[in-house]
Amino acid sequence: MTAELVQILLFPGFVFLFAYAMFVEWFDRKAYALMQNRVGPPWFQPFADFIKLMAKEYIIPRRANPLFFLLLPTGILAFVLTTIVCLPIASNRALYPFEGDILVVAFLLTAASIVIFLMGWFSNNPFTIVGGTRAISQMISYEVPLLFAILTPAILAGSWSITEITAYLRANPILLIIQLPALIIALIALQAKLERVPFDIPEAETEIVGGPLAELSGRGLALFHLATDIEMIVGVTLLANLFLGGFSANPALGLIEFFVKTLILVFILTAMRTVMARVRIEQLVLFCWHKLVPIALVQVLIAVLIKGWWLT
């Protein structure tokens, strides 16, 4: 019991994820800055931002719903942190693996996106409401290709547990090449889920001044930002598990493998936001349904055929 508590609280739980979230945010911002010919922030900047925001007053606007305004920032953090129970982080085994936990992780990440919509809705401000509705339209566009993409390794491995899928793919690395298109789709969908350029349509500060988060301040904003950072880590860890063969059982090797694989994926996401302009919502919807979904379906079909003829 104590060991598990330590695992949940310290490593690979809250404390580790918090520290790594700060590092990844710095890594993202620094790489972004260097690619733009800028200096970029010092390594402690995300941490300093977090402390500063936590120390600020939490203002609840008169028109907002105070209950939800207090609940939602904690809620989104809870949703993304719960995923660590089912997700192997820096090891080959999750804390509590069970058959079907891949769907739990997908569900929790979707719940986090819905919290963003609720945040916009209960802030009751034209900008936040427009932002919230945009978040929903964006969600129904990228969720489908994202689910199809993570379905591919599940079909290949014949399991609904992340730990088992990873173990199976590690044993058969040739399959990783087959599901490369799924990885690309998943990366694009993840960028949309994280609401980063070019898919930062719900937040779009030059159009709707930050969208659902426009009314947030102080602690709420700090928790939201933290949750977004952890969501990014959870996302890339999930992809590293499903598409890059997961991490070694050896603790030291596993940690190194974890850092390398997640940072590569984060770097791809950063590069994506450096070279692209924000798309419009209807461009995103068309792109997801006309391009990503068909490719993902073909990928799933290929996976089914391979599973049916070759692997059995």
Binding site: Q36, T206, A277, R278
Partner: peptide, 13 residues
């Protein structure tokens, strides 16, 4: 213009 369309790299360059 780059900044308005979320293309900050163009802005910086």
């Amino acid at each position: 213009a780059g900044h308005e369309i979320g293309f900050d790299t163009l802005f910086m360059y």
